[in-house]
Design a protein around this nucleic acid. Structure first.
Lengths: 246, 246
DNA sequence: CGATCTTTTGAGTGGGGTCAAGAGAAGTGG
DNA sequence: CCACTTCTCTTGACCCCACTCAAAAGATCG
């Protein structure tokens, strides 16, 4: 039996039983497709579902009245948006599709049912939330302190490692559907400067990026250039110390 | 009976019974003092407690190997750090005191006991977590898109409104213990530029800042200058729609 | 009442922005 | 399948916001 990306990801943290896995997969029953560049949900909307990204890339973004736009997070397959959003009355940001997207809408009851019946999944979902928060803090550091060169390198490192988690990296390459404009919105730079900086990274031999495919010949080297430390992703079975039985 | 800042804050979201309030206050039994500029917990440490800020200001921060430092969040009285951190093996950031600090260390069992016995508190704590995440996203937007002038104005607006929530604003003034260096680390600017920008804000009549006191004569005007929208703080009794009975 | 931290000012610089336009790539419709 | 539009990427020239370095003036605190 083959499981979805959410199971893949949570399994990195917690030891999940076959029963746990099946329950997680059952959660993703209600799936639908979204066209690229369409919004999944908009600032001001009332949140009704937790969205699970099954396939494709999406982003959280916020805009200022004059049109400036900041991508504040990237969603990859296996990512859950906003566990427990129901308690808020309205969204404070939008979520947009980058590629064609396959998402599962999870209603409140299904979510509650799952966590009640599967304590280890609940732990794993907590881990997921905490890592999401840690990523947001790292982005704050990224925007506040890193140079353009470091900043873009850091973004690429992070996405690459997160894709590894859900088995979407072959050898040293992965799909990379973000445009330079998207990278600009995510890093707080202008598209022109992103273009020039990507060329620098290419010239340094740190990345190959063409035709929506990213290749990182030497991940360690790119990480060094980005001042990247993976600790904030909390990989490496953080959940081990919670494995009381079995 | 007078309650602590946590009760004040959560009451902004949920209708709390006297019993709820008393339980929250009982949570803060184990208090201790921290000297200004001391670290409460450091990156790499194992998390053992949830920290409740009872009095004083603190900050989360991250540093790069070469010493660059980014404050990624400010903690005010009533703030809880990292509900549920226990599931992680180590901290990915540090928490430092800005002023003399009074914190309560809450152990895992106390926290679990509280949420089991008080479902409405659990909801309110979820709200708290979601608002914390929303603030982190807003900071990402702040660093990525706003100019120095807007950025500092935004920070001041946010802190002012969050202080209002816990009743720490008298008329149009509040304590403001952050140094210009702290503001620089929080906004990704240099102290020199923060100094000049604060002078601009003063010249525009938007703020009075001297002797660790901040006065905002016209909050609406400062908010306009900051492109500040309060929606991400989710004030205004978001929890109302959850008041089934009462 | 020194020692140290914090704020302020000045002068010069540079990383990244702006504006503009052309070259590719990729959808779209007839 | 090709002409057309529309993104996306690239390059060049110029500029400015915010940084750097340096030093002095206030605060604050043992």
């Amino acid at each position: 039996m083959t499981f979805g990306p959410l199971v893949l990801k949570l399994a990195a943290f917690a030891r999940l039983s076959q029963d746990d896995r099946a329950a997680l997969d059952r959660l993703a029953r209600n799936q639908r497709d979204i066209a690229p560049r369409r919004d999944l949900i908009r600032e001001g909307d009332q949140p009704r579902f937790v969205h699970l990204i099954v396939d494709g890339w999406a982003c959280r973004y916020k805009t200022l009245p004059d049109g400036r736009r900041q991508i504040v997070a990237i969603f990859l397959p296996g990512d859950l948006c906003d566990l427990n959003v129901y308690v808020l009355r309205e969204m404070d940001h939008s979520v947009g599709a980058i590629t064609r997207l396959r998402v599962a809408d999870i209603c409140r009851e299904d979510m509650a049912g799952l966590t009640e019946a599967h304590p280890r999944i609940t732990q794993a979902l907590w881990w997921h939330e905490l890592v999401t928060a840690a990523i947001q803090r790292e982005w704050t550091l990224n925007l506040g302190q890193r140079s353009a060169y470091e900043r873009i390198a850091h973004l690429l490192c992070e996405l690459f490692m997160r894709l590894q988690l859900v088995d979407l990296v072959r050898a040293d390459s992965c799909d990379f559907p973000m445009t330079q404009n998207d990278i600009a919105d995510a890093t707080g730079l202008t598209p022109v400067h992103v273009n020039r900086t990507l060329q620098e990274l290419r010239r340094a031999g740190l990345i190959v990026l063409q035709g929506r495919t990213l290749t990182i010949p030497d991940l360690k080297a790119l990480q060094a250039a980005a001042l990247f430390s993976a600790n904030y992703l909390h990989l490496g079975r953080d959940g081990r110390h919670l494995d009381a039985n079995d």
